[in-house]
Design a protein around this nucleic acid. Structure first.
Lengths: 134, 134
DNA sequence: CTGTATCCAAACGGATACTG
DNA sequence: CAGTATCCGTTTGGATACAG
């Protein structure tokens, strides 16, 4: 068994139990998910309805959008409001908690967008080296 | 002048160039991965060897650590240095590019750690409501 | 329009055994 | 020590059909 004392500690937090760290890791996997980040980012300017989200994100299936929205709602990051209209309208909006995540999330999205070209180059070099001699 | 805080970029979520956006999304999935974030975070103070990383992160299998390190190396985020010693020593270190990612990455890790308790509560409430009436 | 349900293929990821 | 290779169950995610 690994020694809990030497495990990674996020700077601002001192975890007392390994289980707590596992929860945080699971949380990271959830909010760090590409779809979650895109959804959070898409909602930064205000509420959007289901179809608008799907169209704006582009490339996400109906199923995945639904699943991700449910997760984000469960985690208290977004709210889901159903308007009794015909045709039905459902709007998703960031909560205060979701707004807090918006800052780091957009930082990630922007970083990815800013460095996409550079990373593509790195991959090409790496792959070329692998093909050359391994 | 332009406010850095409001340097939000609609084009990121509006897919005008599908291929480029898909690359960025894939990139987000990669660097947003829980293991990648943990690894980046673990390396923030300096180089670490394989076993130190595995021990520090805690809960990651040898296989997953290897795979993630290879990907991060391929993306130019970390370097892998092999020292010809007995026993062999391999050290991983952030590149400048990796250091740039460190800021958003740590923001994500810290946010997750800071809000873990709150989110746990939200989940309990949500699950209770689901169990109650669905 | 906004989902839910089902099928199915691909990717993820742990456990284990083995290598230089 | 730092991997690689393999097996194999679990999870992800698209496609499709159907429902409120």
């Amino acid at each position: 068994m690994t020694n809990p004392e030497t495990r990674l500690r996020p700077p601002t937090v001192c975890q007392e139990h390994g289980a707590e760290n596992e929860f945080v890791r699971g949380l990271l996997g959830r909010i760090g998910d590409k779809w979650s980040l895109m959804i959070i980012g898409a909602l930064h300017e205000g509420p959007l309805r289901f179809s608008a989200l799907q169209h704006m994100i582009g490339g996400i299936s109906q199923r995945m959008l639904t699943l991700n929205l449910r997760q984000l709602e469960r985690d208290g990051l977004i709210t889901r409001t159903v308007y009794a209209e015909v045709p039905p309208r459902v709007e998703y909006e960031l909560t205060d908690l979701g707004h807090g995540l918006l800052v780091p999330a957009l930082a990630m999205v922007n970083w990815a967008a800013d460095n996409a070209g550079r990373i593509r180059k790195y991959r090409e070099v790496y792959d070329a080296e692998q093909a050359a001699d391994g």
